[in-house]
C-alpha cells in the first residue's frame, strides 16, 4: 500500500531537516557526510512511512533512522579506518569554513574527543531537546544508560574545556552535586 502523500507530511519532513542536519553534523563532524546521512534518512523514512505511527513523535522517529544509518556506516568505516575518533578530530580541523565562529572551535574539538555514544547522548538530550526517555528510545538503550552517558559527556567536556573553577572541583562540591542530582 502506498502511503498518502500528505502535504503536511512534506512540510513536517522539511521542518525536521535543520535539526537532523545539526545532529548529523555534530555526530559525524563532516558536513558532506551529514547531508548524505540526512538525505538517506529522508528516503528511508518515505519508504517506511507505513511503519510510522501517526500521533507519535516524527522527529524522534527520524532521529532513530539517522542514528541507525550513522552507526551502520560507522561500523563499516571502522573496518577500514583505524582510530576513528582521531580521524573525526582531524576532519573537524580541516573545515574552517564550516565553523564560522572561532568561539566554537574549542568546543567542537572537545566534543570530537568524546566517545561516540557519549557525544550522541549529549547531543540528543542537551541540544536536540529530547527527553532522557526519548533519547533512550532513539538509541535503543536504557534510560539510566543515557543519563550516565550524558553525565560522563558533560564531565569530560568540562575537564577538556577547563570549564570548572579550580575551587569547584573540590570533593565537597562534587558531593553536593551528587546529592542534588
Amino acid at each position: 500500500m502506498t502511503p498518502e502523500p500528505e502535504p503536511e507530511l512534506r512540510e513536517a519532513l522539511l521542518a525536521a531537516v535543520p535539526s537532523l542536519r545539526a545532529f548529523a553534523i555534530s555526530l559525524s563532524g563532516q558536513v558532506d557526510r551529514a547531508d548524505d546521512l540526512v538525505q538517506d534518512t529522508l528516503l528511508r523514512a518515505l519508504a517506511n512511512l507505513h511503519r510510522f505511527e501517526p500521533g507519535t513523535n516524527l522527529n524522534a522517529w527520524l532521529f532513530t533512522i539517522l542514528r541507525n544509518l550513522f552507526h551502520s556506516e560507522y561500523r563499516k568505516r571502522r573496518r577500514e579506518v583505524e582510530d576513528p575518533d582521531g580521524s573525526y578530530a582531524g576532519r573537524l580541523k580541516v573545515q574552517p569554513e564550516q565553523s564560522s565562529h572561532l568561539d566554537f572551535e574549542d568546543f567542537r574539538s572537545a566534543l570530537a574527543k568524546l566517545p561516540a555514544d557519549q557525544r550522541e547522548a549529549l547531543l540528543l538530550v542537551g541540544a536536540s531537546g529530547f527527553s532522557y526517555e526519548e533519547a533512550a528510545h532513539i538509541c535503543g538503550c536504557a534510560v539510566g544508560t543515557i543519563k550516565s552517558r550524558v553525565n560522563r559527556a558533560r564531565f569530560r567536556l568540562a575537564s577538556l574545556l577547563n570549564v570548572e573553577d579550580i575551587d569547584d572541583l573540590g570533593p565537597d562540591s562534587m558531593t553536593r552535586a551528587a546529592l542534588q542530582g
Binding site: 542537551g126 564531565f155 568540562a158 570548572e164 552535586a177 542534588q180
Partner: peptide, 14 residues
C-alpha cells in the same frame, strides 16, 4: 554513581 558536575559548570557546558 557517576560523578556529577556542579550546576554552574553544567549550565556553561549546556
Amino acid at each position: 554513581t557517576d560523578p556529577k558536575l556542579d550546576t554552574g559548570s553544567q549550565k556553561r557546558i549546556g
